[in-house]
């Protein structure tokens, strides 16, 4: 189970990093969301993965799971959720105010496909 979870965290993080490096706000927001998912699972696992154990010390139980990471994850989820909502609103506002969804607010007045064609033309000429 540990290996599976570690791979999941790795894939989530890698995808998140790739998406946050994109030039448009929507992939960046998705990337940030995936990064926060990865870190939530990571935090949760720091109390060690265990199945069917109570989160408190009981004499009849075989052991216990650490409840603190669960509390930390809960805090991180709440904060991450609020931040995602905020950054979505901000991205929409940037789209409205800057006229496009590029993270630097390029003022080309072209949509993405038109810009690609434009770029291709320039490359053709060069």
């Amino acid at each position: 189970m540990d290996a599976l979870l570690s791979i999941a965290i790795g894939v989530l993080t890698a995808t998140g990093v790739y998406l946050t490096l994109r030039g448009r706000t929507f992939p960046v927001v998705l990337g940030l969301t995936l990064l926060s998912y990865a870190v939530n699972v990571f935090l949760f696992l720091m109390g060690r993965a265990s199945v069917g154990l109570p989160p408190l010390i009981a004499p009849e139980a075989a052991g216990y799971t650490d409840p603190l990471p669960q509390a930390l994850v809960l805090t991180a989820i709440v904060i991450g959720f609020a931040m995602t909502a905020f950054v979505v609103v901000l991205a929409l506002r940037a789209r409205a105010e800057l006229g496009n969804d590029h993270v630097d607010g390029l003022n080309t007045g072209l949509d993405e496909t038109a810009e690609r064609q434009h770029k291709g033309e320039r490359e053709d000429r060069a």
């Binding site: 946050t20 706000t25 960046v28 940030l32 990064l35 926060s36 990865a38 870190v39 990571f42 935090l43 720091m46 990471p69 930390l72 991180a76 904060i79 931040m83 905020f86 950054v87 901000l90 991205a91 506002r93 940037a94 105010e97 800057l98 993270v103 630097d104 607010g105």
Partner: peptide
């Protein structure tokens, strides 16, 4: 709005890294 977007995104990434460090 443009500067704010950069500010928010880089600080969100910073928060994620903070959590990774704290978790480790």
């Amino acid at each position: 709005t443009r500067a704010g977007l950069h500010y928010v995104v880089i600080n969100l990434i910073g928060s994620t890294l903070f959590l990774f460090a704290v978790g480790a």
